[in-house]
Protein backbone atom coordinates (compact mmCIF):
# COMPACT_ATOMS: atom_id res chain seq x y z
CA UNK A 1 0.00 0.00 0.00
CA UNK A 2 1.45 3.37 -0.91
CA UNK A 3 1.66 6.14 1.67
CA UNK A 4 0.97 3.94 4.63
CA UNK A 5 3.21 4.21 7.66
CA UNK A 6 3.66 1.02 9.68
CA UNK A 7 4.82 1.32 13.28
CA UNK A 8 5.34 -1.77 15.38
CA UNK A 9 5.52 -1.38 19.15
CA UNK A 10 6.50 -4.41 21.22
CA UNK A 11 7.12 -5.33 24.82
CA UNK A 12 5.43 -7.36 27.51
CA UNK A 13 2.06 -7.05 29.23
CA UNK A 14 1.91 -4.25 31.77
CA UNK A 15 4.72 -2.15 30.24
CA UNK A 16 2.41 0.37 28.60
CA UNK A 17 2.85 -0.76 25.00
CA UNK A 18 -0.83 -0.35 24.20
CA UNK A 19 -1.07 3.11 25.75
CA UNK A 20 2.00 4.32 23.87
CA UNK A 21 0.52 3.12 20.59
CA UNK A 22 -2.77 4.77 21.46
CA UNK A 23 -1.00 8.12 21.86
CA UNK A 24 0.82 7.60 18.56
CA UNK A 25 -2.59 6.92 16.98
CA UNK A 26 -3.97 10.15 18.37
CA UNK A 27 -1.07 12.06 16.84
CA UNK A 28 -1.69 10.43 13.45
CA UNK A 29 -5.40 11.30 13.69
CA UNK A 30 -4.52 14.89 14.58
CA UNK A 31 -2.52 14.98 11.34
CA UNK A 32 -5.64 13.93 9.42
CA UNK A 33 -4.70 10.31 8.76
CA UNK A 34 -6.93 7.28 8.67
CA UNK A 35 -5.71 4.99 11.45
CA UNK A 36 -5.92 1.35 12.45
CA UNK A 37 -4.33 -0.01 15.57
CA UNK A 38 -4.34 -3.61 16.64
CA UNK A 39 -2.78 -5.73 19.32
CA UNK A 40 -1.56 -9.25 19.21
CA UNK A 41 -1.91 -10.05 22.83
CA UNK A 42 -3.25 -12.99 24.69
CA UNK A 43 -3.69 -12.90 28.41
CA UNK A 44 -1.24 -10.06 28.25
CA UNK A 45 -1.91 -8.49 31.58
CA UNK A 46 0.13 -11.32 33.01
CA UNK A 47 3.55 -11.00 31.47
CA UNK A 48 2.91 -12.29 27.95
CA UNK A 49 4.30 -10.92 24.71
CA UNK A 50 2.50 -7.83 23.41
CA UNK A 51 2.84 -6.34 19.98
CA UNK A 52 0.82 -3.35 18.92
CA UNK A 53 0.51 -2.61 15.22
CA UNK A 54 -0.19 0.95 14.14
CA UNK A 55 -0.90 1.74 10.49
CA UNK A 56 -1.84 5.17 9.22
CA UNK A 57 -2.20 6.99 5.92
CA UNK A 58 -4.96 8.17 3.54
CA UNK A 59 -6.92 4.88 3.86
CA UNK A 60 -5.90 1.83 5.85
CA UNK A 61 -7.30 -1.61 4.98
CA UNK A 62 -5.76 -4.55 6.88
CA UNK A 63 -4.83 -3.55 10.41
CA UNK A 64 -1.90 -5.96 10.47
CA UNK A 65 1.68 -5.16 9.58
CA UNK A 66 3.21 -7.97 7.55
CA UNK A 67 6.75 -9.16 8.35
CA UNK A 68 9.34 -7.12 6.49
CA UNK A 69 7.11 -4.05 6.13
CA UNK A 70 7.43 -2.04 9.37
CA UNK A 71 8.91 1.44 8.95
CA UNK A 72 10.06 1.61 12.54
CA UNK A 73 10.11 -0.68 15.56
CA UNK A 74 9.73 0.69 19.06
CA UNK A 75 10.88 -1.97 21.53
CA UNK A 76 10.09 -1.70 25.22
CA UNK A 77 12.26 -4.70 26.06
CA UNK A 78 15.49 -5.98 24.55
CA UNK A 79 14.61 -9.60 23.76
CA UNK A 80 11.16 -8.58 22.51
CA UNK A 81 12.77 -6.17 20.04
CA UNK A 82 14.89 -9.07 18.82
CA UNK A 83 11.82 -11.30 18.59
CA UNK A 84 10.05 -8.88 16.25
CA UNK A 85 13.01 -7.38 14.38
CA UNK A 86 12.14 -9.38 11.24
CA UNK A 87 9.02 -7.24 10.90
CA UNK A 88 11.20 -4.29 9.87
CA UNK A 89 11.74 -3.27 6.27
CA UNK A 90 15.33 -3.78 5.19
CA UNK A 91 17.33 -0.85 6.53
CA UNK A 92 14.56 0.44 8.80
CA UNK A 93 15.27 1.59 12.32
CA UNK A 94 14.68 -0.12 15.67
CA UNK A 95 14.51 2.05 18.79
CA UNK A 96 14.98 -0.15 21.81
CA UNK A 97 14.80 0.23 25.53
CA UNK A 98 17.57 -2.10 26.68
CA UNK A 99 15.68 -3.31 29.75
CA UNK A 100 15.80 -7.08 30.20
CA UNK A 101 12.64 -8.56 31.67
CA UNK A 102 13.25 -12.19 32.39
CA UNK A 103 10.17 -14.46 32.60
CA UNK A 104 9.71 -17.25 35.16
CA UNK A 105 10.32 -19.99 32.57
CA UNK A 106 13.84 -18.62 32.20
CA UNK A 107 14.28 -18.26 35.97
CA UNK A 108 13.30 -21.91 36.31
CA UNK A 109 16.13 -22.82 33.96
CA UNK A 110 13.83 -24.15 31.22
CA UNK A 111 14.88 -21.63 28.58
CA UNK A 112 17.74 -19.25 28.00
CA UNK A 113 17.51 -15.48 27.71
CA UNK A 114 19.88 -14.29 24.96
CA UNK A 115 23.18 -12.89 26.28
CA UNK A 116 23.08 -9.78 24.13
CA UNK A 117 19.81 -9.27 22.26
CA UNK A 118 20.75 -5.81 21.03
CA UNK A 119 24.09 -7.10 19.76
CA UNK A 120 22.25 -9.91 17.97
CA UNK A 121 19.98 -7.42 16.26
CA UNK A 122 22.94 -5.41 15.06
CA UNK A 123 24.67 -8.58 13.92
CA UNK A 124 21.60 -9.37 11.82
CA UNK A 125 22.02 -6.01 10.14
CA UNK A 126 19.16 -4.19 11.89
CA UNK A 127 19.87 -0.51 12.42
CA UNK A 128 19.40 -0.40 16.17
CA UNK A 129 19.42 2.47 18.60
CA UNK A 130 19.29 1.44 22.23
CA UNK A 131 19.03 3.36 25.47
CA UNK A 132 18.00 2.82 29.06
CA UNK A 133 14.51 4.27 29.42
CA UNK A 134 14.08 3.20 33.04
CA UNK A 135 17.21 5.00 34.22
CA UNK A 136 16.25 8.10 32.27
CA UNK A 137 12.81 8.02 33.87
CA UNK A 138 14.20 7.39 37.34
CA UNK A 139 16.63 10.29 36.94
CA UNK A 140 13.63 12.47 36.16
CA UNK A 141 12.06 11.34 39.40
CA UNK A 142 9.38 8.82 38.39
CA UNK A 143 9.61 5.38 36.82
CA UNK A 144 6.21 5.88 35.22
CA UNK A 145 7.75 8.45 32.86
CA UNK A 146 9.38 5.58 30.94
CA UNK A 147 6.48 5.47 28.52
CA UNK A 148 6.93 9.12 27.57
CA UNK A 149 10.69 8.58 27.22
CA UNK A 150 9.88 5.87 24.67
CA UNK A 151 7.57 8.20 22.77
CA UNK A 152 10.28 10.87 22.77
CA UNK A 153 12.66 8.34 21.25
CA UNK A 154 10.40 7.68 18.26
CA UNK A 155 9.38 11.32 17.82
CA UNK A 156 11.95 12.09 15.10
CA UNK A 157 11.10 9.00 13.05
CA UNK A 158 7.51 9.97 12.21
CA UNK A 159 6.21 11.53 9.01
CA UNK A 160 5.09 14.53 11.07
CA UNK A 161 6.79 16.83 13.52
CA UNK A 162 7.69 15.75 17.04
CA UNK A 163 5.55 18.58 18.40
CA UNK A 164 2.37 16.90 17.16
CA UNK A 165 3.15 13.88 19.29
CA UNK A 166 4.19 16.00 22.25
CA UNK A 167 0.88 17.88 22.05
CA UNK A 168 -1.02 14.60 22.34
CA UNK A 169 0.98 13.64 25.40
CA UNK A 170 0.42 17.03 26.99
CA UNK A 171 -3.32 16.75 26.31
CA UNK A 172 -3.44 13.38 28.03
CA UNK A 173 -1.78 14.65 31.18
CA UNK A 174 -3.34 18.13 31.23
CA UNK A 175 -5.91 17.03 33.82
CA UNK A 176 -3.16 16.01 36.21
CA UNK A 177 -1.73 19.50 36.54
CA UNK A 178 1.17 21.55 35.28
CA UNK A 179 3.79 19.64 37.27
CA UNK A 180 2.94 16.32 35.68
CA UNK A 181 2.81 17.93 32.24
CA UNK A 182 6.23 19.49 32.80
CA UNK A 183 7.72 16.16 33.93
CA UNK A 184 6.37 14.52 30.77
CA UNK A 185 7.82 17.27 28.59
CA UNK A 186 11.20 16.63 30.15
CA UNK A 187 10.84 12.87 29.71
CA UNK A 188 9.90 13.38 26.06
CA UNK A 189 12.95 15.58 25.51
CA UNK A 190 15.19 13.06 27.30
CA UNK A 191 13.92 10.24 25.06
CA UNK A 192 14.51 12.33 21.95
CA UNK A 193 18.01 13.22 23.06
CA UNK A 194 18.85 9.62 23.98
CA UNK A 195 17.74 8.33 20.58
CA UNK A 196 19.71 11.02 18.78
CA UNK A 197 22.83 10.46 20.88
CA UNK A 198 22.72 6.71 20.32
CA UNK A 199 21.88 6.89 16.61
CA UNK A 200 24.30 4.91 14.43
CA UNK A 201 26.40 6.93 12.02
CA UNK A 202 24.30 5.78 9.07
CA UNK A 203 21.04 6.99 10.63
Amino acid sequence: MPNITNILVCGIGGQGVMTATEILSEAAIAEGHDVKKTEVAGMSQRGGVVTSHLRFGPKVLSPQIAPGTADVLLGFEAAEALRWAHYLKPGALALVNDARLVPPVVELGLFKYPDDPIGEMKARGVRTVSFDAATLARDLGDLRLGNTVMLGAIADQLPFSAEVLLDCIVKRFARKGEQVVEANRRAFAAGRAAAQAAAPATA
Binding site: G48, R83, W84
Partner: peptide, 13 residues
Amino acid sequence: PLPPLFPRPPTLC
Protein backbone atom coordinates in the same frame (compact mmCIF):
# COMPACT_ATOMS: atom_id res chain seq x y z
CA PRO B 1 5.13 -18.86 13.25
CA LEU B 2 7.13 -17.22 16.03
CA PRO B 3 10.88 -16.69 15.82
CA PRO B 4 12.91 -19.18 17.88
CA LEU B 5 13.36 -17.37 21.19
CA PHE B 6 12.29 -18.30 24.70
CA PRO B 7 8.49 -18.17 25.10
CA ARG B 8 6.68 -15.86 27.49
CA PRO B 9 3.70 -17.85 28.64
CA PRO B 10 1.28 -15.80 30.73
CA THR B 11 2.04 -15.93 34.45
CA LEU B 12 0.01 -15.47 37.59
CA CYS B 13 0.36 -11.97 39.05
